[in-house]
Simulated assay, not measured.
Amino acid sequence: MSEKPQPFEELDELIERMNRQFGELSRTFEGGSVLSEIAVDVADTGDDIVVTADLPGFAEEDIDLRADRESVTLSADSESETVDEDANYHRKERTQQSVSRRVPLPQEVDAESATANYANGVLTVTLPKLDPDAAGGHEIDVE
């Protein structure tokens, strides 16, 4: 009795091999100098929308923060260099980190009145909500 070919089994094996290889590649980037994503929390506190983002290893001046009525865009770039000198050798190590994320907001905000605080690797952005009645203009009576 001959065995039937199993094309889907071969395809499953190929997909598994690719997943393993991509997993190894992503671990290389995570352990090296590239972060893939900024972890964020978005909270509604009543009058404000508060976005909290983890940005460990960055200085305040490395962070670029932009907001509009519907989203917040966070990005950070940092480059550091370590020099270790000894009588027999000279070694330089450089690391670069670059992250960026656009965070959609659940409600329109007043971006011009936003405030931000960065402490211990955590960025906190407070965005006052727009009054839903005022955000859409004014009502016009029809006669």
Rank of each mutant, 00 (worst) to 15 (best):
S71E: 00
A43Q: 13
S98V: 05
G57Q: 01
L127V: 11
P128E: 00
T82A: 12
Q96I: 14
E9Q: 15
E139T: 10
S75G: 06
H138M: 14
I38M: 02
V103C: 04
Q107T: 07
T115K: 02
A134D: 15
E61Q: 15
A39I: 12
G23K: 06
P104M: 07
N19H: 10
G46P: 05
R102N: 09
E143F: 13
V34P: 00
D12Q: 15
K92I: 15
E60A: 08
V40E: 01
F8T: 08
R27G: 02
S26V: 02
V99K: 14
S80G: 15
N120Y: 02
D41S: 02
H138C: 10
A76P: 01
R27L: 08
D68A: 12
D68W: 13
K129D: 03
S75T: 04
E10L: 11
T73V: 15
V109W: 03
D44F: 12
E3G: 02
K4L: 13
L130P: 07
V40C: 15
Q21G: 07
L55P: 01
R91T: 09
A43T: 11
L14R: 14
I140F: 07
G23E: 07
A116T: 10
S98L: 04
Y89K: 05
A67M: 08
I38P: 06
D84T: 13
V125M: 08
A116G: 04
N117I: 01
E79D: 15
E108R: 14
T73Q: 09
G46D: 06
E60Q: 13
D86V: 07
P7L: 14
F58E: 02
P106F: 03
Q107L: 02
D62K: 13
V142D: 03
R101I: 00
G46M: 01
D54N: 12
E143W: 10
E112V: 08
T126C: 05
G137Q: 11
N120F: 10
E61H: 14
L65N: 02
N88L: 06
R94V: 07
F22W: 09
A87M: 09
I63D: 04
A114D: 11
N117D: 13
V40F: 09
N19F: 07
M1Q: 01
T28H: 03
L105P: 00
G136D: 10
T126I: 01
